[in-house]
Nucleic acid binder design. Sequence first.
RNA 1: GCGGGAGUAGCUCAUCUCCGGUAGAGCGACAGCCUUCCAAGCUGUAGGUGGCGGGUUCGAGUCCCGUCUCCCGCUCCA
Length: 510
Amino acid sequence: MAKNSEDRFKKIIAHAKEYGFVFQSSELYDGLSAVYDYGQNGVELKNNIKDYWWKSMVQYHENIVGLDSAIFMHPRTWKASGHLDAFNDPMIDNKDSKKRYRADDLIEEHMEKLQGKIDKEVKKARKRFGEDFDEEKFLATNERVVKYKEQIESINNRLVKALEDENLGELKQLIDDLEIVDPVSGTKNWTDVRQFNLMFDTRLGSLSDDSNKVYLRPETAQGIFVNYLNVQKTGRMKIPFGIAQIGKAFRNEIVARQFIFRMREFEQMEMQYFVRPGTEMDWFEYWKNERVKWHRSLGIPDEYYKLYEHENLAHYANAAYDIEFAYPMGFKELEGIHSRTDFDLSAHQEYSGRKVQYYDPETQESYVPYVVETSIGLDRLFLSVLSYAYEEEKLDDGSERIVMKIPPFLAPIKVAVFPLVRKDGLPEKAREIINGLKYDYNCHYEEKDAIGKRYRRHDAIGTPYCITVDHQTLDDNTVTIRERDSMKQDRIPIDNISPIVWERLRENRG
RNA sequence: GCGGGAGUAGCUCAUCUCCGGUAGAGCGACAGCCUUCCAAGCUGUAGGUGGCGGGUUCGAGUCCCGUCUCCCGCUCCA
């Protein structure tokens, strides 16, 4: 990370804490690594983001409905989804090179080397015997080849058994016995083999035995897939249709850092769109464009976004696109659009033994729908808004201000109301105005300190509009409304505050 | 997880270094005064068992060990 963006990132994190957006979890007890809490302003911003996403998906699309599934799910869900197998890796570090490897990979590479030796022997023999060479016979009888083959077999047996038993000590022993060296450092100075589990587990019920182990979901999508039939049938949904969900997910990341970008407990906003097989690429394109449009509607300039097409695909996908955002630490994934094929629904059909299909009246056939997923990290979106919004501004008079240029319709507090001075009945008038506005907008009243200071305080949390009650207000019932970014003021009648704020909030939504 | 750096008031920091002797400032917050519009007027108040635990010592923020957390690099990442 470049020095100045590193500084900027630090300032944003400090600002987020100082102004009640994000606190480290359990800070009182020295904090909990990679877990964060949202403070009084953070929760408002986060709720506003959620609300906007939810409306964009569920309210603005008649064929998309919502869902709120539980975090606990039947353990077989994760067997079916592939998470149980795909994210259970035994890892080992070389103390000299500081490199980390998958222990089973190292052993497999060793076996491949042995296989390479066999191939070499075969090649040599073929050269020697020419036309008469009988490969099968050679493989079965050549002393050296047979020895290599036996070695491979015995290693493989030990490896498979060790993995099955989750015997980490045996894996380490195997690496020691084979005298495997680190390709980088060339040494055999290894740590113990340790198990890394992506998923958190816990016990359901008060008796602790292995049979009631359950996992905290590592993605919300599976809650949608296992409810596909329920929603499709009870909602009488016709393909194509979507199910949207906002919820917490949990991942025990090996390294979880970078503030709220990568957390152990995080929130996803996902929409799974069920389509007829063969049309998935069209819908993939469609949602790619829709999601880009949605991001543009936040009013953040295009250059903050970059599209990235995946070449290494996850176990469930046949196409994947990331929308990346220019965070202070560089372009990083904000949202993923994936064509998940029928991988998940088929897997659940197989593991549950139930028919997870759709009868298409048009084609008069049943099929397992294909799925196009849009999956965005709520916390990452929050961070993108926060890091875009943070600005240290030099004003014409030479002074500085820190202003959070949060898209106004997402701002934690929409309207702040101040009496110019704390006397002459101005505070009472200001209270009166707030009481009229608070049912429509999140408002804030302040009378402490000089007026300029109060403006700056609200700049720092991104409040788009400040209403000031002055002496003229008492004569003609007008107030000034000050706009955050331009710092310009208009004088408007009290009765017009609500419609004008409404109008401006709408305008600001791309 | 490994390696390096750091942790003193809400924030920024001072004191720390070869020399151990009962923690200060600015900003901020709060209360009040003064002020007719963009942070810096006046008065007062609160706030720290120096991340936590242990050791050495008559005495530790200061020396030693452990631990937690954060930052940087490496590794991993649906």
